[in-house]
Design a protein around this nucleic acid. Structure first.
Lengths: 168, 168
DNA sequence: ATCCATTAGTCGGATGTCCTACTATTTATC
DNA sequence: GATAAATAGTAGGACATCCGACTAATGGAT
């Protein structure tokens, strides 16, 4: 007879039980929330990357590509990309390096401000962006392992969290 | 006059608007959910890492340390650590390498199965684990930028998602 | 008993993220 | 106008994660 009650299978539930057993009741929910976020992120990212793999791009690069594809001019300064995607400047440099190596975008000098580098999406870049979006929509976004109502709840709650954190 | 309506400040809300404008209505929620997850993870991780920095450990290593600290024997095989934390074997190798270098854990041979490596937490490891938990509980987990009720809802919904993904 | 599939870990490589410099420009100040 | 402060990007380094390949050891199947 094993010491494994039927509810013990979820590692996060198990961790919460440990927290409560130690009397950290006021921290148990937060611990569970943070840990759930970590794991859910991992799952979602993995699904997305699997779908994008055949197109030879990653989610980070897809986000850059779509931002450019949906922009009015098809080009944006590096810094703006970082702000919109809320990642560090150096992460943008990294992503653009790889997108440029794949000829999906090209760096262009800014016409008036020589400090600024404009990133411009190419025709191939637009093709990849569109195909990637199609596949992602069909294979992940229309069924993100969550039923509609709770999913909208999560999005809303996380919006509050992001706002609390000063995201916007 | 700028083309920036008051609601335009949230990048994810903006992305959803784009999705809907393109007629991808059935994918808009999923896209927003996945993107929210990515960003919320980033925020939570950043807060946690900031708190742990003075103790010279990361969240990944903290999780390994706590798993060992709360285990009955204070030691576990590498593989079990990976299963519980749901990360790749090589990630465990990596984390244990660093924890061992910091003398917080030690690798021990398994008494009967020579393939298996047991990871044992040290006295210093336990100290660090306890101090880290105290600080995390006080500075992050008791206030994870979410009010209680919605937070529990998120945890529950993400539990369903993890279960759908085959986590447990 | 012997051979092969499975299991446990490690190694090397690719990515993404952040941080701390450091360079080049632009802008503001005196 | 010359100098100082702010802004835009890049370079190098530290970490974490995953994947594929490789080594050892265990255990079944014949």
């Amino acid at each position: 007879m094993v010491d494994r009650s039927p509810l013990n299978s979820d590692p996060i539930a198990e961790a919460r039980r440990q927290w409560e057993a130690h009397g950290w009741n006021d921290a148990a929910d937060g611990m569970a929330a943070v840990t759930s976020l970590m794991r859910a992120h991992q799952i979602a990212l993995s699904r997305v990357e699997t779908v994008l793999k055949p197109l030879e791009i990653t989610f980070a690069r897809y986000e850059v590509l779509m931002l450019l594809h949906l922009s009015s001019r098809g080009s944006l300064p590096m810094g703006v990309i970082g702000s919109r995607l809320q990642v560090h400047q150096t992460s943008v440099t990294n992503a653009v390096d790889r997108l440029e190596a794949a000829h999906l975008v090209a760096r262009q000098p800014h016409p008036t401000d020589r400090r600024t580098t404009l990133v411009e999406i190419s025709a191939r870049g637009r093709q990849v962006a569109e195909r990637a979006t199609q596949t992602l929509n069909a294979e992940v976004f229309t069924d993100p392992l969550l039923s509609s109502a709770p999913m909208r709840g999560v999005v809303e709650t996380l919006r509050d969290m992001r706002q609390q954190a000063g995201d916007f």
